[in-house]
Design a protein around this nucleic acid. Structure first.
Length: 554
RNA sequence: GCGCUCGUAGCUCAGGGGAUAGAGCGCUGCCCUGCGGAGGCAGAGGCCGGAGGUUCGAAUCCUCCCGGGCGCACCA
């Protein structure tokens, strides 16, 4: 990408200036270039002179001047200027910029893909909500973030696996099973109440009905007896199917649905990891429970792995799970995406990864802050009545996938967010999703009209794209690779919807200032159609990565 | 109390060592005898929570304080 080329020019200039004796020798810091906020400062700017003025024992402006003399010529660069207090500013060559429109249009769907992550196997695990209930709004945020990150990383050549960890074992599942059995019995007229700490939600009744309708009374046992564990497993299965559908409706597809219960099978991962920890001396037995001596690994305290009732804790199976990710399956990198309420778990899991022989630096935990719902000014409570939560499905049905995903992606993950249902539903200029989609529909509209009237971008001369609005738009198109790099490096997909808005704005300005189809000027018409091709490519790819549709018409 | 995180325009948020702090919405005033006005242009609106410090340079880094959110289980 162009930013890397500019950076390389600065590095070469530095080496050349030192070689020629215009700058003294010293260890050179990493060179960065950025986009100045004021257009008169050029397209790219290097602050290197300011940073090395001390090392060079020269004034920054003099350093900049020495560098400027040694910047190699480049077809992309029209001018390099020194600006006080010591910036080195680069101005792109308009002819080169114009040519990029052709390059982008030709690249099509391949534009802004790269092989930066080639050979790296990355697992992204996200949502992984308990299958004891339908997934809710907060899970939706994780879904949007995770699947977008997966899309972007895949486009950068990473070998990405998306995974949902199904918590189908443990206390909560047992309680769900008992609740389900109570509801099941009620369907056969038995006077039973759902257990204490059970799941009061209506959905459990629906699950019970489904099972009764399919399998009749075969799970009914004599009054007072405990439920058949098979019923609970079946119920979880039904819930997982429902979760899968809800996520599918959000445009999220997983490669692997990983069962927590499978870890605990005889001789499974869980047993293996426990004996591994024992061998390494990380196991302590005390107060009837089995503890992980995590305080030896810098944790503030030890944590229970096996409770005194013999049940493994969530933490224990999570250690086994991460052992499986790193050691058994050998991912080069693992990204876990969790709600911020799991924040305390991060250092524990990292400590555990280290204890089982993994590299905790290859584990990234992306935390997202919680979501509140609103309708305009009015707050919407996330739980409607006892046990009934606002589900993700309801949100998607009410406002649509496009708005749901776009809104979830907009704020950075560590910002708590308000999801305004009223705004998300508005089909008007107040709604940023429509602003962006409208740009795409407008482009599609013009392209269709051009086709009807017999115009095309064939043999277009991109050098005619000299108008300010054209040049600005192309510069915006050239930004996508940088944006994607920032998304990956910062695990920050929120850059994408912001970029989409900037891009749409640049297009709308172009559209009002430059008429595309002009029968009296066919060469210019062709050139501008080429630019529209390029803009459409970039806009649709940006939207596609976010899982938002790029409509031909609205 | 301890840990993580946030505090930037009226509202929702970007920017996380650089040059005069940005966007959308809202507000005010303009622009349709040409491809979709779901658009564009202009303007008003900010001691970047507060106080110290580091630096040539701080909204950005450090310390303390104030305020919001989330954690600190033999729950997940």
């Amino acid at each position: 990408m162009i930013r890397d080329e500019i950076r390389a020019l600065v590095e070469q200039a530095l080496a050349a200036a030192q070689g020629a004796g215009d700058l003294p020798q010293f260890a050179t810091p990493a060179v960065t270039v950025e986009h100045p906020q004021r257009p008169e400062h050029g397209d790219f700017s290097a602050n290197l002179p300011l940073r090395i003025q001390g090392l060079a024992k020269m004034k920054a402006v003099e350093v900049a001047e020495a560098l400027r003399r040694h910047v190699p010529a480049s077809e992309a660069v029209a001018a390099v200027r020194v600006a006080p207090p010591g910036f080195l500013n680069f101005y792109l060559e308009p002819g080169w910029v114009a040519r990029q429109a052709a390059a982008i249009a030709a690249a099509g769907e391949q534009y802004a893909t790269s092989d930066a992550g080639r050979g790296q196997r990355v697992q992204i695990e996200y949502v992984s909500a308990n299958p004891t209930g339908p997934i809710h709004v907060g899970n939706g945020r994780g879904a949007a973030i995770g699947s977008t990150l997966a899309n972007v990383m895949r486009g950068a050549g990473y070998d990405v696996e998306q995974e949902y960890y199904v918590n189908d074992a443990g206390t909560q599942v047992a309680i769900f099973g008992r609740t389900l059995y109570a509801r099941y019995q009620q369907l056969f007229g038995r006077e039973v109440t759902i257990p204490e700490n059970g799941y009061p939600g209506e959905y459990v009744v629906e699950v019970a009905k489904g099972i009764r309708n399919r399998l009749g009374d075969r799970f009914l046992r004599p009054s007072g007896e405990e439920s058949d564990p098979e019923l609970g497993r079946l119920g979880i299965h039904v819930m997982v199917d429902q979760i899968r559908e809800d996520l599918h409706a959000m445009g999220v597809e997983y490669d692997v649905w990983y069962s927590e219960r499978s870890l605990q099978a005889e001789g499974g991962m869980y047993d293996r990891v426990l004996s591994l920890l024992r061998e390494r001396g990380y196991i302590v037995e005390r107060e009837g429970a089995v503890w992980f001596a995590s305080s030896e690994l810098g944790e503030s305290k030890d944590n229970v792995l096996i409770r005194s009732d013999g049940m493994p804790t969530y933490y224990a199976t999570d250690i086994a799970y991460h052992y499986d990710k790193f050691i058994e399956r050998g991912f080069d990198r693992v990204i876990d995406i969790w709600g911020a309420d799991h924040q305390g778990h991060v250092s524990r899991v990292k400590a555990a990864v280290a204890a089982v022989g993994g590299d905790p630096d290859r584990l990234d935990v992306l935390l997202y802050q919680l979501v509140a719902l609103r309708r305009g000014r009015e707050a919407v409570p996330l739980s409607k009545r006892a046990g009934e939560i606002v589900t993700l499905r309801e949100i998607v049905e009410e406002v649509g996938v496009d708005a749901t995903r776009f809104f979830f992606l907009l704020p950075s993950a560590n910002q708590t967010m308000d999801f305004d249902l009223e705004l998300a539903k508005k089909q008007s200029d107040e709604n940023p999703v429509f602003y962006v989609q409208y740009a795409h529909a407008r482009i599609a509209g013009v392209l269709a009209k051009a086709r009807e009237e017999g115009f095309s971008s064939e043999d277009a001369d991109s050098q005619l794209l000299t108008h300010d609005a054209e040049q600005t738009l192309i510069r915006k198109l050239l930004l996508l690779p940088e944006v994607l790099e920032e998304v990956i490096e910062g695990l920050a997909p929120h850059h994408l919807p912001h970029y989409a808005q900037d891009l749409a704005a640049a297009f709308h300005v172009f559209y009002t200032q430059c008429r595309v189809i002009d029968a009296s000027n066919e060469p210019l018409t062709r050139a501008r159609l080429l630019l529209l091709d390029a803009a459409r490519v970039v806009l649709s790819r940006t939207l596609g990565l976010m899982g938002v549709s790029a409509p031909e018409q609205m």
